[in-house]
Design a protein around this nucleic acid. Sequence first.
DNA 1: TTGTAGGCGTTATCAC
DNA 2: GTGATAACGCCTACAA
Lengths: 316, 316
Amino acid sequence: MVTLGDVAKQANVSKMTVSRVINHPEQVTDELKQLVFTAMRQLDYRPNVAAKALANNRTQVIKFFILEDIDTVEPYYMNLLFGIASGLDKKQYALQLVTKNNFDLGGSDGYIITGARYEDYEWIDRLEKPVVIFGENRNGYDFVDTDNKQGTTLATEYAIAKNYQSIVFLGIDVKEPFEYSREAGYINTLQKHQKLPQIYRMGNHSHETEQFIRDHWRQFATNTAFIVASDRMALGVIRGLQAQNANIPTDFGIIGFDGVFLDQVTNPKLSTVRQPVQDMGQLAAEMLLRKIDQNGAPQGEKLIPPELMIRGTMRQ
Amino acid sequence: MVTLGDVAKQANVSKMTVSRVINHPEQVTDELKQLVFTAMRQLDYRPNVAAKALANNRTQVIKFFILEDIDTVEPYYMNLLFGIASGLDKKQYALQLVTKNNFDLGGSDGYIITGARYEDYEWIDRLEKPVVIFGENRNGYDFVDTDNKQGTTLATEYAIAKNYQSIVFLGIDVKEPFEYSREAGYINTLQKHQKLPQIYRMGNHSHETEQFIRDHWRQFATNTAFIVASDRMALGVIRGLQAQNANIPTDFGIIGFDGVFLDQVTNPKLSTVRQPVQDMGQLAAEMLLRKIDQNGAPQGEKLIPPELMIRGTMRQ
DNA sequence: TTGTAGGCGTTATCAC
DNA sequence: GTGATAACGCCTACAA
C-alpha cells in the first residue's frame, strides 16, 4: 500500500507537504505541487479513507433515511440512490441506507432524509450532524426537490393549449408541501385562463384511480384532460378510460408526474412531468458535503425544473 | 466521544480486554466480560469504525456493482439494495454503489456484483478482494440467486394442473445461466408430462411481448397459458391479450417472474414467481462478510426457493 | 512556505 | 487470561 510517506519520499518533501497538496493546495508553491503530483501518479497513490476519517474525527459515511413506505414509490428511489451515490463517491463518502426497520442515528457525518412528514421534524431537529432534506418542506430546512409547481403549470398549460375543454386534477390525499405545490401550479394556471379548478384526491395507487374513473365516468365529458399527481395513479386512469373504450388522446388526455419508470410500461406511452431524479440526488449529496465542509452552514433550497414529456396519452 | 479507553477505565481493566470482549470474547473470563458489558452500556459506547478500519487495514466499505442497464430492471434492484444494506449494517459496513458510469475498483474490502455477463469475468478474475456474484453463474464463483429452475417448474406445474392445454414460454433473448435455468424448469416439466415445449425469445420489454401477441395471435388457441420470464414482459402479454378481447384467466393464463413491483400495477393482478429479493440481498451481504472474515475462502452457491403467487391472471 | 511532533481510536504482538 | 507497547495513515498545531 502506498502512503503519504511513500509519496513524500519519492518527491523529496515532507509528508505534510503532500497532505497540503491534497487538502490545502493554495498553501504550496506550484513547483512543489508539480513534484508531488507526479510522484502520486508514479506510485498510483490512493489516500486511505479510514486514516483520514480517524484524523478528522469523521466517519466518511452519510446516512440516507427513507421514511416513506418503499413499496409505493420504489422505482423512483433507485434513481435517487444512484444520484446520491455518485455525488458521494467523488469525495470518498460511503452510503448507509436507513429505513424504519434498521433505524440508527449514530455513526455518520451527515444525513439525507426523504419522505419526512410533519411529525418527523421533531427528531430531525435533534440531529447533531448536518441534514439535507430531499423533498419540499416549509420549515426552513435545506432541501432539494423538483419544482413541483412549475411541473403542473407546464402540464396544465399544455392541456389548455391543446384545447382540452375540461381539465381535472387527480391528487394524492396527503397534506404535504409537494402536493400543495402541484395543486397550486394547476389551480393558478386554470385561474389565469379563467377556468374552474376541479380537484379529486385519493391514495397513490393505480387501482384507486381506476376505480375512480369507473365510478365517475358519467361526469367527464369528452374532451377532458387529467393532470395526475403521479405516474402510478396515471396508470390507473389509462386503464379506467380504456375500460370505457374512451379514445386516448383524442377525447381524453392524461399527464402523469415522475417520469422515472412506470411511464415506460403503459400503452399508449404515458405523457408525464419528468423529474431528473438522478441529478437531484447528486445535488442533494453535493449540498450535504458542502454543508459538512462549512460546519453546518445553511444551504437554502434548490428547486430543479422538471421537463414535460409529451407522448401517446396527449394530443401532440 | 466515548472510546475504548473510557470503557476500560470504567470497568477497571485495560483497553485490550475491552477490545477482546468485542472481537475475541472467548479469550476473556465471564467475570470480566460482564464488567465490560455493563461499562459499555453505562457509557453508551460506540466503536469508532474508522479507527477499527485503520488498525485492521480495512475500509469497512463494500462496493456493489450493477453492470446491467438500470432502466430495464430498476424496481428489482431497490429491494436488493435494501437487503444488502441491512446485511452490511449489522457489521458496520457501508455501501458504495458502482455502475458503468462511476467505475472504480479501489478502496473496499469486497465486492458484490450483479448483472455480470460472460465478458465481465475477465476483470472480475483480477479483483484482489473477495467477490460474491448476485445471479447464477457457472464459472465457479460464489453466488446467490433465486432457484430459477424451480420457479418455472412451479409455474408450469400449476398451469398443467389447472388444465391449460397449451403452455408457452416467453423468454429473454440473452445467453445467460438464469435464462437457461428458467427455460430448463419449463422444458423439463413439459417433458415429464409428455407435452411439447414451445419457446419464443425476445427483449425484456412490455411492448415487445405485446407486439408478439398481436402478431402471433392466430397461433394461440383458447386454453393457453403463458409462462413469462419477467413481470415486465408479462405486462405486455396482458395488454396484448386484452387488445384481442381475450378472456383472462378463463381462456388464457399468464404467470410472470420477479414479483417485485410491476405485479402490483396490472389489472387483473399478475400471477408471478416471487423472488425474495430483499432476503437474497441480505444473504449475499452476509456471504461476502463471511468470506472476508475467512480470508476469501469459497462460500459456494446459494439458491433461494421462490414462491408462486397466484392471482387474477390464472385460474384459481 | 515547509517541516516536526504528537495524537486520533483501535488492534496485533509480545510479555507477564 | 490480562496488560503494555507500538503500530495503522493522516492531519492539526506549532516551530523553523
